[in-house]
Design a binder for these strands. Structure first.
Lengths: 224, 224
DNA sequence: GTCATTATGTGACTTATGACACACTTCCGA
DNA sequence: TCGGAAGTGTGTCATAAGTCACATAATGAC
């Protein structure tokens, strides 16, 4: 499979591009470049102009932010097949977090200028993008009310399920960071995890969580 | 001033169109129609296709939703100069609430089909719209974390300040509805309002709140 | 007017969660 | 090998806010 075709597949998996036609995806993919990073190399920093969209071909990118106390908090891990910077490529605003390679990494790069001039030539695609952005706005405002008002166990279960989708049943994350993710104190996270361990839903190790029963976790996340 | 010019002014006041050039606004305004509603008349209902954007020329539109128990909750009031349905006009999704005229009302109407074919002829405007939507997405995701994690007094103060901007210092809203807005129990809302009344920040009447000291309310809303 | 309805005020209680404190373990570097 | 840092487990306490229960006051239908 050509690089372009590979990138098209990644785009297709992202909700933002999922509904575009095969021909449009192909033409967009034709605009992409690739970029190599060695482990620890910085892709961009907070404040940099958002002048591209990235897709991970292989390796890992860590999205992190410097906290006020100097410590670094990892906000997200992007693995092969993941896409990030979809909004930045469209509006060019500053990056809101840092991105560094966690290991040797190869990226697909879609530059903002290339994508915008493509949209200008293809107004139908632009309108399609507008509709997708609108969906996202709606989706966000629904989630806004919904998610944050949920009790901690639900938020925690949702986050764990999401992480499990990316990394399988062995999630590599400290309870501290998990607390930041779900907006809760580390201790509260720990107590909930303990409870779930007693219920055989998961197991705990230092810096790592082993999900045994994703089915039950999903039930909790749904909060029927 | 012509109707079109009047509509252009309303568009210009909305963040979504604020950055468009005068010529573009003029051409968009040229697409608009007007519509008259008598008091109590229904403009659209939840589930209707979102096939237009509306601007209030005179009168009042109530955005409300039927709760499961059959009671109606007013989510918002739109007065002269207010614009609503900006997202619907772009993506055509179902309306998520009902809209009825609170009094005899005249509306500007910008139909979805007209606007979309305009965008197709003017890809530069489409790209501009894309960027504005992106801003909105960013703005939303900032607000998302920020606002909901705030304690009740802050959320309440923010909502009251926002309402004050629309309606001046006499806000017409029941404490019940205010509770729905800020995601809190009516009783909690009441207790906080009582506290503020003691502090001379506001006064309470049946179905109505009189803001005396917006400065202090703003301070609380900032939550320094 | 009478009566039902709706909005508001308030107390008692419960619960979830944050905050703090501290012990224990694992890891890693000098 | 030592020592400290980071991650984790747990107890105690304080507090914000929800829930329930009821009293009171305004409004509107008849």
């Amino acid at each position: 499979m050509s690089k372009q075709a590979e990138f098209a597949v990644i785009l297709k998996m992202n909700p933002m591009f999922a509904d575009l036609g095969a021909d449009e995806l192909q033409r967009i993919s034709g605009l992409c470049h690739t970029q190599h990073l060695s482990s620890g190399e910085v892709l961009f920093q907070k404040g940099d102009p958002g002048n591209a969209l990235f897709g991970v071909r292989r390796g890992q990118i860590r999205i992190e932010t410097g906290a006020t106390d100097g410590s670094r908090l990892t906000l997200n891990f992007m693995g092969p097949g993941d896409l990030f910077g979809e909004v930045a490529v469209l509006d060019g605003q500053e990056r809101t977090a840092d991105a560094t390679a966690g290991e040797a990494t190869e990226l697909f790069v879609l530059r903002r200028e290339d994508f915008l001039s493509f949209l200008e030539r293809e107004p139908k695609v632009a309108i399609r993008i507008i509709q997708l952005l609108c969906q996202r706005i709606r989706w966000q405002s629904e989630r806004m009310e919904e998610s944050v008002l949920q009790p901690l166990p639900v938020r925690l279960a949702r986050r764990l399920c999401a992480l499990a989708e990316d990394f399988g049943s062995e999630v590599h994350i400290s309870q501290e960071q998990l607390g930041v993710f779900v907006g809760a104190a580390r201790e509260s996270v720990n107590r909930q995890l303990q409870a779930w361990r007693k219920d055989k839903i998961l197991d705990l190790q230092r810096g790592r969580i082993l999900l045994h029963d994703l089915t039950r976790l999903n039930t909790i996340a749904r909060n029927d």
